[in-house]
């Protein structure tokens, strides 16, 4: 299963490192990554592959939430199909 992870918040040192660490620990593979400052916010988007993930989805999301809290950013994980079906015919 492929998913999009979005990280939005105030820019600071170590956001990418923090998020990537959670993903690496749980065997989530990063396929693509882009980062920008959008409307004054640090915005990072990752395409990840969850097929070898060692945690169930709800626990992984919880872990990401905790990491997000400590970094002061909001982290969302959603299946890629949501975005594809909305924006691609």
């Amino acid at each position: 299963m492929k998913a999009i992870i979005t990280v939005i918040g105030k820019d600071k040192i170590g956001i990418i490192a923090g998020v990537s660490q959670v993903l690496a620990e749980n065997k989530v593979n990063i396929l693509d990554i882009s980062q920008t400052i959008l409307q004054d916010y640090f915005t990072m988007m990752m395409l990840v592959d969850l097929s070898r993930a060692t945690l169930p989805l709800d626990e992984l999301k919880e872990n990401l939430d905790k990491t997000g809290e400590s970094l002061g950013v909001s982290i969302k994980l959603q299946r890629e199909d949501v975005f594809k079906s909305m924006h691609r015919i």
Partner: peptide, 12 residues
Amino acid sequence: MLNSYEIMETIR
């Protein structure tokens, strides 16, 4: 990959 505008639009 989807572009960031599209992803942000859905999230918003």
